[in-house]
């Protein structure tokens, strides 16, 4: 698998061939607080770059999760739907949100590197 890339909306993406895995960052989970609900897309659904793809809710509020990359969903992670608190525990590992078959690799390359994302979070603390 490739190194992770990051979006300004606090999603991470990793790429394995033409299949991308998307989740929310640790920074995002810290902003959200305790996660108590997650909804993931069904396989076969098309998503656009920066289009709404999933939902995550904390005790405080509901937030949309966007796909940083366009493509067709191949799998939603049912494990996080069954146990939403696992997203707080391992957001950038086992608790990914969905996988998708991407259309353009260029979209992936244009996302932020880890260093760029860390700087972005520092400059935009909320």
């Amino acid at each position: 698998m490739s190194e992770k890339k990051f979006s300004k909306k606090h999603e991470w993406v990793s790429l394995d061939g033409d299949v991308a895995t998307v989740g929310i960052t640790k920074h995002a989970t810290e902003l959200l607080g305790d996660i108590v609900f997650a909804e993931v897309p069904e396989a076969g659904k098309s998503v656009e770059k920066e289009g709404q793809a999933a939902v995550v809710e904390s005790t405080k509020a509901a937030s949309d999760v966007y796909s940083p990359i366009s493509g067709e969903i191949t799998e939603g992670n049912k494990a996080i739907v069954d146990d939403p608190s696992s997203i707080n525990a391992d957001p950038e590992g086992a608790s990914w949100f969905f996988k998708l078959k991407i259309k353009e690799k260029g979209e992936f390359e244009s996302l932020m590197s880890k260093e760029e994302y860390e700087k972005f979070c520092k400059d935009n603390p909320n």
């Binding site: 607080g33 305790d34 108590v36 904390s58 005790t59 405080k60 608190s85």
Partner: peptide, 10 residues
Amino acid sequence: PIQYKDGIVK
């Protein structure tokens, strides 16, 4: 304060 270090659920 809306929450402290432990978070709302704890």
